[in-house]
Design a protein around this nucleic acid. Structure first.
Lengths: 104, 104
DNA sequence: TCAATTAGTCAAAAAAACATGACTACCAAT
DNA sequence: ATTGGTAGTCATGTTTTTTTGACTAATTGA
């Protein structure tokens, strides 16, 4: 059992939720790449040096659940999936911008 | 060995460093309490329900190393230690402010 | 001098996060 | 029919983070 039992993913400090949604080994990089355009699984995997399917899949799923990314099935030539920043995800660029002043 | 070998705590994505400095199970709460005034170890421990000495000590040390908190020995009545937000730490309030728009 | 409060450290265990390798399933082209 | 690309899942193992409980050491008040 976890030590503090709060409703559902609710932290005692508001920022905790956002921090969790953005942190982890791959999420910041995924977020950054998503700013440049839609992401595709295998391509992403190749771009994230040292990553692996499992971790990337988990990160994508969590970011989707957190409404940062939106997953779309693209009905085209090779029928594939795209991950794009949601409206909320795009708005979060302000959070990253605010961090840029602290690059020690 | 870690999968990516970059200089020293340098991440491939600038925000990663800041995110690391602020995340962890206790850091956001500690940060928040520090906004209200100087922190003292035992008092902090009591306020952070479900925490433990070790984790709090580690968080404090890391936040000090990241120049978020400053540790001071206070030469007073019961001779104690205080943790206060550094200039940089205080400035980081803007990062937390920017997160407040995303309280899902 | 005894007990409490100050602020921790240390070794070990438990829990959470991350990585590995095998496997699945669909579609398209050869 | 087989190969290769799409996007994953699953069980397992390793690594990192967090917790537990015992211990230390200086200071203070009775």
């Amino acid at each position: 059992m976890t030590t503090n039992n709060l409703p559902q993913g609710e932290a005692s400090c508001p920022a905790e939720n956002i921090l969790k949604q953005l942190s982890g080994k791959w999420k910041p990089q995924i977020y950054r790449l998503a700013l440049d355009g839609p992401l595709r699984f295998n391509s992403l995997l190749r771009q994230l040096q040292g990553s692996n399917k499992q971790s990337v899949a988990t990160a994508l799923k969590e970011m989707e659940e957190a409404d940062i990314l939106v997953k779309t099935v693209v009905q085209e030539k090779p029928l594939h999936i795209e991950y794009t920043l949601s409206e909320r995800g795009l708005a979060m660029v302000s959070v990253f911008k605010s961090m840029e002043g602290f690059l020690n």
